[in-house]
Amino acid sequence: MSVKQISVFLENKPGELNALTQVLASHHIDMRAMSLSETNEFGIARIIVDRPLDTATVLKDAGYVCTVTSVLAVAIPNVPGGLNQVLNVLSEANINLEYGYAFLGGKKDSAYMVFRVANNSTATAALREKGIRVAEPGELEGM
């Protein structure tokens, strides 16, 4: 199971991220999570929002280059060693993580890790087999 993440190309210069959030704000788009990766000259802002497909359209209309990627959002038990349990499963299943980032859900005790992996279904199956919850499509959007 996977959720939709939007990756946006940004130049690495002052005001770029501000301009992006301005567009999102003016369209009343609510962000659930965000992660920034950068090189010297450019970066990628990865966001999870309430209305992913609308957002992609809004951003394209505003002149951004962006892409919608399916990523895995894994619920992390909010106890010491919670993330470690999850990673143990992925590691044993020999699943490589391209990147990941954490965020807290709206409810108490709900934390998530977003992971980019080569195959979402394999990873989901491996996690569910060990009783770890993976977000359903739409779950984060409606939060």
Binding site: Q5, S7, F9, R46, K60, V65, C66, T67, E98, R116
Partner: peptide, 15 residues
């Protein structure tokens, strides 16, 4: 200019 065709979510690939 970056284009939709050449953009990917993967920094390594862009590099």
């Amino acid at each position: 200019e970056m284009t939709s065709e050449m953009f990917t979510d993967n920094l390594g690939e862009i590099d």
